[in-house]
């Protein structure tokens, strides 16, 4: 009897009380999909969402990125209240938008505005993959175009962080034309000697990759980011062969001459600061 009492064998599973459950906040721990290690989410956040064990770059949302890279308290947001309509009357589109608005606390898949980096003014656009996979519809195209135009008029640089699955299908050809709209605006910025820096983050594919993301005076990318025009599955089906694991990664693009540099997230602020500073010191068109 007494022996049974000291036995290590557990006979019953312990079920935590409802109140005890509440003490453990949702998502306290996180598992890295790359190295499978488990760690505190706080630890990850402190490390700019880069895995402390394997350097895997986890997603960073738009406002987190702003906070990590730019000068505190200098952000002034533009077009914050612009939202998507349903121009094609596409089935279920409005419900999906509403769901993502609640889930992400964003009004659309890009945040734009004016901000400072080491005291230098710049226009910025940060895409957020939590909203409709960062896909580009009319609002994303319009907000980015407005930011480019403001950069041109105010003679400040334009920096974009891309994160997008491509054009948004529910807005059909209007989404496709946003590639044109943003590129036409970039041409005007370019013609006036404006600086444009593109930082591609995971993922940057389809119509976003085939428009502004690839058009920077400097094209940078975060390690391991998926960057490409067509989807892996489509390509494998088309050419009937298996693609290498590193296909369409930032490193793959660097090797094929499509990027200036792959930048670790910890180096981003420093490198962007250097580029802005070099441009600020001269060489601008007069």
């Amino acid at each position: 009897m007494l022996r049974d009492f000291f036995s290590k064998k557990k006979r019953y599973a312990s079920i935590p009380r409802q109140e005890a459950k509440k003490d453990v906040p949702e998502g306290l721990m996180q598992k890295c999909p790359n190295c499978q290690k488990i760690f505190y989410r706080k630890e990850l956040n402190r490390n700019m969402n880069v895995c402390p064990h394997c350097d895997h770059h986890h997603r960073l949302n738009a406002y987190e990125r702003l906070e990590h890279i730019f000068d505190e308290g200098t952000f002034e947001e533009w077009d914050k209240h612009m939202i998507s309509s349903n121009p094609l009357g596409f089935p279920d589109y409005e419900e999906k938008l509403e769901k993502d608005r609640l889930k992400s606390d964003l009004n659309e898949a890009v945040v734009t505005g004016r901000v400072q980096l080491n005291g230098l003014d710049t226009a910025v656009a940060i895409m957020d993959a939590r909203f409709r996979m960062g896909s580009m519809g009319s609002v994303v195209g319009e907000k980015i175009t407005n930011a480019i135009e403001k950069a041109r008029k105010e003679k400040i640089p334009f920096i974009i962080f891309t994160a997008s699955g491509g054009a948004r299908m529910q807005e059909g050809v209007l989404s496709l034309m946003q590639m044109g709209k943003t590129s036409v605006a970039l041409q005007r910025l370019h013609a006036e000697g404006g600086l444009f820096i593109s930082v591609m983050t995971h993922p940057t594919t389809g119509g976003v990759s085939a428009s502004f993301a690839s058009l920077g005076d400097y094209n940078f990318a975060e390690p391991g980011a998926l960057i490409g025009f067509a989807g892996r599955r489509i390509i494998e089906q088309t050419i009937r062969e298996k693609l290498p694991d590193d296909f369409q990664t930032a490193e793959f693009l660097l090797e094929h001459g499509q990027l200036d540099r792959v930048l670790h997230r910890h180096e981003l602020k420093k490198t962007l600061g250097m580029v802005l500073e070099i441009h600020h010191s001269g060489g601008e068109k007069t």
Binding site: S214, I239, F247
Partner: peptide, 26 residues
Amino acid sequence: GAYPGKAAEERGQSEAIARNLMEMAG
């Protein structure tokens, strides 16, 4: 559509299209 192939990606299908959009504007 533009060809979805391995070589096309290696040679920068995205960049080639993007460049045309921007240049045609000017």
